[in-house]
Structures are given as structure tokens and as C-alpha cells.
Design a protein around this nucleic acid. Sequence first.
DNA 1: ATGTCATATCATTATCCACTGATACGTTAG
DNA 2: CTAACGTATCAGTGGATAATGATATGACAT
Lengths: 116, 116
Amino acid sequence: MTLQNIQDDLSAADTLEPRAKLFRGLGDPSRLAILDALLSDERSVQEIVTQTGLGQPNVSNHLRCLLDCGLVSRRNEGRFVRYRLADRRIADLIRDADQLLASTAVGVDACRSYTD
Amino acid sequence: MTLQNIQDDLSAADTLEPRAKLFRGLGDPSRLAILDALLSDERSVQEIVTQTGLGQPNVSNHLRCLLDCGLVSRRNEGRFVRYRLADRRIADLIRDADQLLASTAVGVDACRSYTD
DNA sequence: ATGTCATATCATTATCCACTGATACGTTAG
DNA sequence: CTAACGTATCAGTGGATAATGATATGACAT
């Protein structure tokens, strides 16, 4: 390994943490369910709660997380708050992940590290 | 919400867990560093240890996880074991994530849920 | 102003998971 | 066969975080 490579790694390390955070943001079934609910339409918290079956405080917590991360945006409408995906590419990312999972090579089921 | 929508959600729930697992597989700085090391070339465990600065058992554990998930593949060569990315699309996924992070909209830094 | 509804926050709990050190397994060299 | 090296596994530990119930905040209607 050359010095240049070492420096590449070090500078890459700066981008490692944000990348990990983004993926972790997507790496939770509840948050994925919420994002799924937002794929087609803007939704109020109540609608998300109903559609996902998750608890209301739970949904609010996850939405805060997704909002802070910039994955969703919000809009006040009276006493409702409507959320929607912040960027088309988020849906693309999820779609790409699904395609990977659909291929025979990537079979996450066999992964014993993350017990479902 | 119609009955059809409910059924869509239920069937979507089946794909939620695997998707979450895949993203969680990518949602760890150490694993991202390992995948980074494999972006250009096939690497032995030792090389990965050196390049990432992680502990050897730690690297082995993560590699097992990545292997079970199907994100990397391995090849025995004498007493060395060489790992490589299992699929080009994995690199693409990481690249797409970086592009998302580069846009102003998605600023994961502000997310307080995941303390670095 | 008061009650009601929608959403957000807080504290608690339980769980999961990454890291470490010690050790086992497997392969090659002498 | 034995030593040295590369890799994998195991047990223990600490830290992070998802879910829940209770409660607070904010907005609308009457």
C-alpha cells in the first residue's frame, strides 16, 4: 500500500460515517415501512400509523429521524403534518436494493448476524 | 385505505425485513471500510486489516456477515482467503448513496438519532 | 375558554450488535 | 512432526437504539 493509498483511505474515512448513517437510516423495517407509505403519496402521521400498524410515538420518532437525515420533508396543514419523500433518488435507492435482493447472489436471509 | 391497499402493505411487509437487513449490512462504518477496500481489487483478510486499521477478528466477523448476506464472495488460495465484491451493483448502490449525500437536501449530519 | 384531535417529546426497558482478547483450525515450510 | 502464519470462532462487555406508555405541545371548533 502506497502513501497515496493511505491518504485516500483516510479521506474516505470522512465519508464513511455519513454513508453508514444514511444506510442505517434505511436499515430499519419500521422506517422502510414508513418510506413505503410515502412512495406514492404525501401522508399525514395518522395515515402512516394506520397504514403501517406502528405506534404513533414510534412513527413520530422515526419521522424525526428521517427528517433530520433529510430523507423526508414535512408540511404543516392545520393540525395535520404531511410528510413526503425529500428526493426521488431515495425511492430509486430502495428499488435498486430490491433488485439486488431479487438476484440469486444476494440472499440476506442466510445472514446469521442480524436475527430477525 | 382500501382492502387492496392493506393487502399490498402486508405483502410488502415480507420484503421489508430483507431490505432492512441489506441496508443494515451497509450501515456500519467498519463494513463500509471493508467494502471500500474491495472496490478496486480482490483482497486477503490481512490486506483488509492493514488497509482499514480494524482488528483481525473484527474484520473476520464482518466478512462473515457480508459473506452470509451475499455481498462479498471468497476464494481460497493456499492459506490466504481472498474476498471480493459479489456484485457490481453493490458498488453502484454505495456510489448512489454518496451522490445523495452530496446533494444539499440529504444532510445526515443533522440526524441526532444516530450519535457518532 | 375549553374540549378534542393531531403530533411531538420524554423516560424506561429490553434488545441487539460491534469490539476485544483468547483460542481454535487449517495450511505451508523446514 | 513441528513451527509459523493466516483465518475463523467464542465469550464477555459496553454502548446504542427501537418500542412503549405517559405526557406535553399546538391547532381547531364550539
